[in-house]
C-alpha cells in the first residue's frame, strides 16, 4: 500500500527462457526464496522499483507523523500523551530504517527527501486526510495501522535483504500501534454520548480512505505482476483489502460502531465479508495533490527541512573543526 501507484518500468514479466544468464540466475535465486543483497547484480528495473517503493514507504512514515502529531499537544491524559508520542516517534524510526535500506541501493536520504519535498515522489494517500477529533487517534491506529500491518507482515519475506530486515524490525515495533488505537476506540465507544459520536464519526471518515490504502484493483496490472515476480510485492491489492475487511468488520461490531457501508455483511457462501469499493475518483484526486491536506503536509515537511538547514550545517561544521583540531594535535 505504501507502494500505491508505483509505475514499474518493465513491459510485462519475462519468462526464464527469455532472460540472459545473469538475469536468469537472479530470478532463480528469488524463486528459490533467496535474498538479493546490495552488492549483488540486479536488473536495473528491480533497483529502480525498489528505490521508489522503499522511498515511498519511508516518506509515508515521515509524513505519517503529521496527522497524529497534530494531537500530541491535545492528548487528554499524561499516559495517552506518552503513548501517542512514543508511537509517532516509532514512525520517525521506521522512516529512518527505510531510508537506510534505500541508501544501500545507491541513493542518499537527502536525495529522497528532496524528491519528496518537490512532489516528485509520493507518499501514502491516507496521510492527506485530516485528524479532526481525539477519536481519530483511535481510528488511525485501528484502521490505518491495521491496514499497514496487512501489507508489512508479508514484506518481511521480500527478496531484497536490507528491505526485509527493515521490515522485520518495523513489524516488531508496530505490534503495539494497532492495539493502542483500538484501545482508544474502546474507551470512546463505551464512553459518553459525545465520545461515541466522535468514534462513529472517525470511523465514517477513515473507512473509505483505509480501504484505498491497498491501491486500486491490480488484477490487470503488468506492473504488479512484475513486482510479484521479483517478490517486492507479496500479495495482490484485492487480496489484502479483503483480508482487512474480514478482520475489521467484526471488530467494529464489537465496538458497537457501524461501518459506513450498508453492503458490508458476511457472505455465508464465500465466508468473506462483502463490501462496496471506496470512491476511486477521490483516491485519484488525492494522489494528484487535491486531497484535503496535501498542501499542509508538504508545507510542513518543507518548513521542517528549510528551518533545520542551519542546524544540520552547524553541527557538521563543528564536527569538521573538531576533526582538524584533533589532527593538528597529533
Amino acid at each position: 500500500m505504501y507502494a500505491q501507484m508505483i509505475k514499474s518500468t518493465g513491459q510485462g514479466v519475462k519468462s526464464l527462457d527469455e532472460m540472459e544468464p545473469q538475469e536468469r540466475a537472479f530470478q532463480e535465486r528469488i524463486d528459490a526464496g533467496g535474498k538479493i543483497e546490495p552488492k549483488d547484480w540486479m536488473p536495473d528495473g528491480y533497483r529502480k522499483n525498489l528505490i521508489r517503493q522503499i522511498g515511498q514507504h519511508a516518506h509515508s512514515e515521515i509524513v505519517g507523523q503529521l496527522p497524529e502529531g497534530n494531537w500530541i499537544t491535545r492528548a487528554p491524559t499524561l499516559e495517552r500523551k506518552a503513548i501517542l508520542l512514543a508511537k509517532v516517534q516509532d514512525e520517525a524510526g521506521h522512516g529512518l530504517y527505510l531510508y537506510c535500506a534505500a541508501e544501500t541501493l545507491g541513493v542518499t536520504r537527502d536525495d529522497l527527501t528532496r524528491d519528496l519535498l518537490s512532489g516528485k515522489m509520493k507518499y501514502s494517500s491516507i496521510f492527506n486526510y485530516p485528524t479532526l477529533t481525539w477519536a481519530d487517534m483511535g481510528a488511525v491506529g485501528w484502521l490505518v495501522d491495521g491496514a499497514a500491518i496487512m501489507n508489512q507482515v508479508p514484506l518481511q519475506r521480500t527478496s531484497y535483504g536490507p528491505y526485509a530486515r527493515a521490515m522485520v524490525r518495523i513489524c516488531k515495533e508496530e505490534s503495539f500501534h494497532q492495539r493502542q488505537g483500538f484501545d482508544i476506540m474502546m474507551k470512546m465507544a463505551k464512553g459518553t454520548d459525545a465520545q461515541r459520536k466522535m468514534a462513529q464519526d472517525a470511523l465514517n471518515r477513515f473507512w473509505g480512505p483505509a480501504l484505498m490504502m491497498f491501491g486500486p484493483s491490480d488484477a490487470e496490472s503488468v506492473h504488479s505482476a512484475q513486482s510479484m515476480a521479483w517478490k517486492i510485492k507479496m500479495n495482490s491489492n484485492d487480496e489484502l483489502r479483503q483480508k482487512f475487511v474480514d478482520q475489521t468488520a467484526p471488530q467494529a461490531e464489537y465496538l458497537g460502531l457501524t461501518i459506513p457501508d450498508e453492503t458490508c455483511k458476511l457472505n455465508e457462501e464465500t465466508g468473506h465479508y462483502d463490501f462496496a469499493q471506496p470512491d476511486w475518483d477521490e483516491f485519484f484526486d488525492v494522489l494528484k495533490g487535491n486531497g484535503p491536506c496535501n498542501t499542509e503536509r508538504l508545507e510542513a515537511r518543507n518548513k521542517a527541512w528549510d528551518d533545520g538547514r542551519w542546524v544540520r550545517e552547524g553541527l557538521l561544521a563543528h564536527a569538521a573543526k573538531k576533526r582538524s583540531a584533533k589532527m593538528a594535535a597529533e
Binding site: 503529521l66 500530541i72 499524561l78 508520542l85 516517534q89 520517525a92 524510526g93 510542513a300 528551518d307
Partner: peptide
C-alpha cells in the same frame, strides 16, 4: 513534544521525543 515530526533531522526528532517522554514520566 511540540517538535515531534518537524525536527531538523530524523535522529534529532527521535531523540527529542525521548526527552519529552522522560519528562512526562517524571511529571506522572
Amino acid at each position: 513534544s511540540e517538535w515531534c515530526g518537524v525536527a531538523p533531522v530524523l535522529e534529532e526528532d527521535i531523540a527529542l521525543a525521548n526527552v519529552a517522554l522522560d519528562l512526562i514520566g517524571q511529571t506522572q
